[in-house]
Design a binder for these strands. Structure first.
Length: 103
DNA sequence: TTAGTGACAGGCA
DNA sequence: CTGCCTGCCACTA
């Protein structure tokens, strides 16, 4: 596991309940401004082993970006359970729920 | 070693 | 606001 992967895992683990981060934001906090695609790879690869709150990572449009319809639905439900609202187009208001920090 | 792939993002019409 | 196109970069075959 390389350093970037470790950083990405740490960032994801630090997302508080009830907040979300976009793939690009996770990458930026991890020190790789253009590593959004690596974030998705880390989620696929290490979610189970590292016990990551994978459902708190969404894309820049505020939508769930997973392809598998089953997991897509699971993620939406998990977020709703944490108090996050979706609009009529299945989008989250990032102005409200995005986890902002100053590292 | 090269080409293809993906749970992305930002710019543009 | 929405959909399409291009750039990205680690991983895989």
């Amino acid at each position: 596991m390389n350093q970037l992967t470790k950083n990405i895992i740490t960032v994801i683990k630090n997302i508080p309940k009830g907040s979300v981060l976009t793939y690009g934001t996770v990458a930026a906090y991890a020190g790789a401004p253009r590593g959004a695609r690596q974030v998705s790879w880390v989620l696929k690869t290490y979610t189970e082993r590292e016990n990551l709150p994978w459902h708190r990572v969404i894309n820049s449009k505020g939508q769930i970006s997973i392809k598998d319809p089953v997991y897509h639905q699971i993620q939406k439900q998990l977020l709703i359970d944490e108090g996050i609202d979706f609009d009529d187009k299945d989008r989250i208001n990032l102005d409200i729920y995005l986890f902002l920090t100053n590292i």
